[in-house]
Simulated scan of single mutants.
Amino acid sequence: MRPSQALCYFVVLLLASSSYASVLEDTCKAFGADYDYCIKFFQSDKDSATVDKRGLAVISTRIARAAAVSTLKRIAALKAADTDKKIQGPLADCDAKYTGAVNGLDEAARDIAAGKLQDAVTYLGYALDVPASCNEAFGEVGVKSPLAAEGHEFARECYVARFVTTMLSASKPPRM
C-alpha cells in the first residue's frame, strides 16, 4: 500500500469513527437531562461508539436484557434462601414477569434489526412495566420489594432502549 493510500484509508476510518461517535452524542443529547446517564449506559458496550442509530437501539435492548437476566438470578437466589411463604408468591410472579421481559427484549432486538420498529417499541414498553408490576406484587402482601433497586435500574435501561427505538422509528422514511 502506498503512503497516500494508507493516509486516505486512515482519514476515512477517522471520519467514520467520529461520525458514529456523533450519532451516540446526538442520541444522548436528544435524551435530555440524563445525557451523562445515557453516555455511561452506552459506554458499557464498546460497540456503541461504532454503530448507527439502529445499532444503538439493538445495543440498548441487549444491555436491558442483561439486566433482566441478572435480576432473574437474584430472584432465584431469593427464592432458594427465603423460606417466608409470604414472599414466595411475589417472587414467583416477578420471576415470570422478568422471564417475559427477557423474551420480549429478544423479540424487540429482532424486530429492530428487521425494521419492525413499532413492534419493538411495544415489547420495550412491556419490559418497562415489569419493575412496577413486580413491586406491586410485593406491596399486595405488605412487603417492600427486595428487587426495588434492580427494578429501578432495569426500568431506566428499558426507557433508554424505548427512547432510542422510538427516535429511530420517527426518523424512518414512510413506506411506499
Results as ranks from 00 to 15, higher is better:
residue 137 A to F: 07
residue 158 C to M: 09
residue 164 V to F: 06
residue 54 R to P: 04
residue 38 C to P: 00
residue 34 D to Q: 04
residue 122 T to E: 11
residue 95 D to A: 13
residue 139 G to E: 01
residue 47 D to F: 08
residue 95 D to V: 09
residue 28 C to A: 03
residue 105 L to T: 05
residue 28 C to E: 01
residue 74 R to M: 11
residue 40 K to Q: 07
residue 133 S to D: 13
residue 99 T to C: 09
residue 16 A to T: 12
residue 114 A to F: 03
residue 61 T to A: 01
residue 67 A to M: 05
residue 140 E to M: 10
residue 16 A to M: 09
residue 42 F to C: 03
residue 72 L to S: 05
residue 142 G to F: 00
residue 164 V to R: 03
residue 65 R to H: 10
residue 115 G to K: 02
residue 27 T to F: 07
residue 30 A to H: 04
residue 80 A to D: 13
residue 169 S to V: 09
residue 35 Y to W: 03
residue 45 D to V: 06
residue 70 S to M: 11
residue 153 E to W: 05
residue 18 S to V: 13
residue 171 S to G: 05
residue 22 S to F: 06
residue 113 A to W: 03
residue 90 P to Q: 10
residue 99 T to A: 15
residue 101 A to F: 05
residue 8 C to Q: 13
residue 152 H to L: 14
residue 16 A to D: 10
residue 9 Y to P: 06
residue 114 A to G: 00
residue 12 V to T: 11
residue 101 A to E: 00
residue 102 V to N: 04
residue 3 P to N: 13
residue 164 V to W: 03
residue 156 R to N: 15
residue 128 L to G: 11
residue 83 T to E: 13
residue 9 Y to F: 11
residue 87 I to H: 05
residue 86 K to C: 07
residue 129 D to Q: 15
residue 21 A to W: 08
residue 143 V to Q: 06
residue 48 S to A: 10
residue 143 V to C: 05
residue 124 L to F: 06
residue 151 G to Q: 07
residue 89 G to K: 15
residue 163 F to M: 00
residue 39 I to Q: 04
residue 50 T to W: 15
residue 29 K to L: 12
residue 96 A to S: 12
residue 20 Y to I: 01
residue 176 M to S: 15
residue 22 S to N: 11
residue 56 L to H: 06
residue 162 R to F: 01
residue 79 K to M: 11
residue 56 L to T: 06
residue 107 E to L: 09
residue 120 A to V: 00
residue 130 V to D: 05
residue 49 A to V: 04
residue 130 V to A: 08
residue 132 A to K: 15
residue 116 K to N: 12
residue 7 L to V: 13
residue 101 A to R: 06
residue 21 A to N: 07
residue 50 T to P: 08
residue 19 S to D: 02
residue 33 A to Y: 09
residue 170 A to H: 12
residue 160 V to D: 06
residue 124 L to W: 03
residue 74 R to N: 12
residue 10 F to H: 15
residue 146 P to T: 02
residue 120 A to C: 07
residue 22 S to P: 00
residue 168 L to P: 05
residue 54 R to I: 06
residue 42 F to V: 07
residue 83 T to C: 08
residue 161 A to P: 01
residue 89 G to T: 08
residue 12 V to I: 15
residue 125 G to S: 02
residue 173 P to I: 13
residue 94 C to Q: 01
residue 147 L to Q: 03
residue 69 V to D: 11
residue 135 N to P: 00
residue 49 A to W: 14
residue 17 S to L: 10
residue 134 C to D: 03
residue 124 L to R: 00
residue 74 R to F: 11
residue 85 K to A: 08
residue 102 V to T: 07
residue 59 I to E: 07
residue 2 R to H: 12
residue 62 R to K: 10
residue 137 A to S: 14
